[in-house]
Write a protein that binds this DNA or RNA. Structure first.
Lengths: 340, 340
DNA sequence: CTGAAAGCGCTTACAG
DNA sequence: CTGAAAGCGCTTACAG
């Protein structure tokens, strides 16, 4: 059984194929009555336009691309991407756009995917994640002319549109909160050092600690996995002047840190306060629940998708500053116990 | 700057467009020398075939679809889907297939998406998740003739190909293990009751408990969220004959259950043993680490994708039985303490 | 407001 | 083994 084409609709509605096309695209060229009749016929015979034929005729492919460059093991465990995707989807489905997903091994593979997608006209634009310091993907996308929105920044996005959140401000708020509780030795377990937002956080951390005259504002680099988070925590808690508070760059590492503290016989929050970035349901599941920096990630995805659709639509789009993460104090932070 | 077409390659290589097409598709019709020359020219000018034109000419669209019908909040927190997707991707990228993802609100929306995808020739086939008892999607896909592989079963998949794992066997192994430790009152916090694998597990649970002569083999239905997992656990632990062991249908609920037990002053595993399904890094992060039922989810995705590509290729494909989940004992299970 | 026609970039019989 | 040509299903100027 062949699927109906635009010619079937035209024949059945007694009009030309062109008229059907205009009616379907909501363009002038057909009377309102004709348009309604055509739409009714199309619905009746279950017609939907071939996306291939549309794309070939110069229309958009009505799909956007998202290439994810993270090893499978961290992809699964971090809620961030799925939440982002669900937001992106919400915006795309509303406009009948499809999302093409591709997991890539490294930046070169990612760049090759962009070239292929654009060459094949498979996507109308892409969302770029995990912006790095001095990111090689940015100039390639600029050169290709592939519509793109970078999720990250500020800065480092060249002439590409972007959506970002003020991580520096969120970090400062957190350190000030811990300092107000009486903490003096605050450490941080950071994310992948090559990511731009990691260096933005690290820089902000160093500066605010200097301003508040806190010593030893050490950041231990990590990779977002629980194993590395645990290792970094052990190292920090074994040091002679161990910190009384640790800020983690994601929820998984924070939970691993909590476990390590308990293993080592340290009370949380009595002996150690813990703050997690990327608030998630996980933070509320553990005992004590974790104080966390959170924001609406699905909404972030919605905004990114909206920006991209605007770029695809030909609009001149710049930076969009999303909500700043806010701190939700829970049971894992308190004033440090007086020692001796 | 226009992107190169097959005509550009043909002109530059001094052959017809047809020859280029044959060369690119690895079909007979061109000599090996010519093929190499054509391929070299194509690479040189950065040519890739328009997927739209290919699809329109009757070739495959080289994309498969995955519609996910879960609320955003559970999508993010469960590693399962991301792990599955990373496996699916691994198989697809190797064959240059794209993955089109769509998050849908309910089964009707999902069915509409299948109809649209097929009508638009946007995908060559689909992967179907979260199989339900008496699933309405199955007959629709059969009628449409859309190549599909159902992830789930056994049973309930009609004439569609499927990939499944023997949850009943895994559950029996778990109950026998707990019984061997001396547990008599074992409960279970189940997943969404409408999912087929939930009812398969529930049925297996009831039967093995009867066989082992264990009383009160109660299953509390839930929805995979931490909140519901916590609520179900509170209910179980407050009952007069509280269980000494609980099996959870996912990791998130198990972690929530652990938290509740600790809140209520019950020692794990002394007073309560906990087993989590869907072993994940999370299970190793908490304290004590959770005994869990696990299997290789990315591999499951690889197998599902491979099956689907076979179906698309016209092969007659049936059920594929994947690895059975195996139990990894960790600190959350032990013999129950003798009660006074 | 409508109809006939060209064209998008491929694939694939069909002659040579 | 190669070349010329039709056709996939749309969109969009271009005449009427």
């Amino acid at each position: 059984m062949k699927r109906p084409t635009i010619a079937d609709v035209a024949r059945r509605a007694g009009v030309s194929k062109g008229a059907v096309s205009y009616a379907l695209n909501g363009q002038p060229g057909v009377s309102e009555a004709t348009r309604q009749r055509i739409l009714a016929v199309a619905a009746e015979i279950g017609f939907s336009r071939s996306s291939a034929a549309r794309a070939l005729s110069g229309s958009a492919s009505d799909a956007i691309g998202l290439a994810l460059c993270r090893p499978a093991r961290t992809l699964g465990i971090e809620p961030f991407f799925m939440e982002l995707i669900s937001g992106v989807e919400a915006e795309l489905s509303a406009r009948s756009y499809a999302l093409t997903l591709q997991v890539v091994a490294d930046q070169d593979a990612e760049i090759a995917v962009y070239r292929r997608w654009w060459g094949e006209r498979r996507v109308d634009g892409v969302l770029v994640c995990d912006l790095r310091t001095d990111d090689r993907r940015v100039p390639v996308l600029e050169e290709l002319g592939l519509p793109a929105v970078v999720i990250g920044g500020p800065g480092g996005t060249g002439r590409l549109a972007s959506v970002w959140s003020d991580d520096a401000a969120a970090l400062v708020e957190t350190v000030e909160y811990l300092a107000a509780l009486g903490h003096r030795r605050i450490a941080r377990v950071g994310g992948l050092p090559e990511l731009l937002h990691t260096s933005i956080r690290t820089e902000a951390f160093t500066q605010v600690c200097r301003r508040l005259d806190l010593p030893d504002a050490v950041t231990v680099p990590s990779d977002y996995t629980g194993e590395e988070g645990a290792r970094a925590t052990r190292r920090l808690l074994s040091s002679p002047a161990r910190p009384t508070a640790v800020i983690y760059d994601n929820d998984v590492m924070a939970i691993a840190g909590l476990s390590v503290a308990q293993e080592m016989g340290l009370a949380v929050p009595g002996d150690l306060s813990i703050v997690a970035w990327d608030d998630s349901p996980l933070c509320r599941l553990v005992h004590p629940p974790l104080t966390a920096l959170g924001r609406d990630i699905p909404a972030y995805g919605v905004h990114a998708a909206r920006q991209l659709l605007a770029v695809i639509g030909g609009a001149s789009v710049g930076e969009f500053r999303d909500e700043t993460a806010h701190l939700t104090p829970r049971g894992s932070t308190a004033s440090p116990l007086r020692i001796g």
